[in-house]
């Protein structure tokens, strides 16, 4: 998984039926010092995060497992909201 911040949202009505009801966010990847690094990615929200949330996300095949109880056509998913990072 990697750290990221929710910085935007994609709205689509015409989509694969398995994505019905799925919230699709734009995530800015962060490094361990929470600095912005690299290009934004598009990920399905699996934990009711919102704009500005500090999160962590998965990529690749596991993206299909982002939502509870059903497989979805996704290669990236938000799987956790960070409360804090203890040093």
């Amino acid at each position: 998984m990697k750290l990221g911040k929710v910085v935007g949202k994609i709205v689509s009505t015409m989509k694969d039926s398995q994505l019905k009801g799925a919230i699709i966010f734009i995530v800015q990847p962060l490094n361990e010092n929470l600095e912005e690094v690299g290009e934004p990615i598009i990920a399905v929200d699996g934990v009711e995060s919102h704009d500005g949330s500090l999160i962590f996300y998965i990529q690749g095949r596991e993206g299909t497992l982002t939502l509870e109880g059903r497989t979805i056509p996704s290669d990236a998913g938000i799987v956790g909201i960070v409360d804090r990072i203890g040093k």
Binding site: V7, G8, K9, V11, S12, D16, I26, P40
Partner: peptide, 13 residues
Amino acid sequence: GSIVAVVDTIEYK
């Protein structure tokens, strides 16, 4: 590569 959605709106920053 599967096209799974037609985008209506992009909201960014």
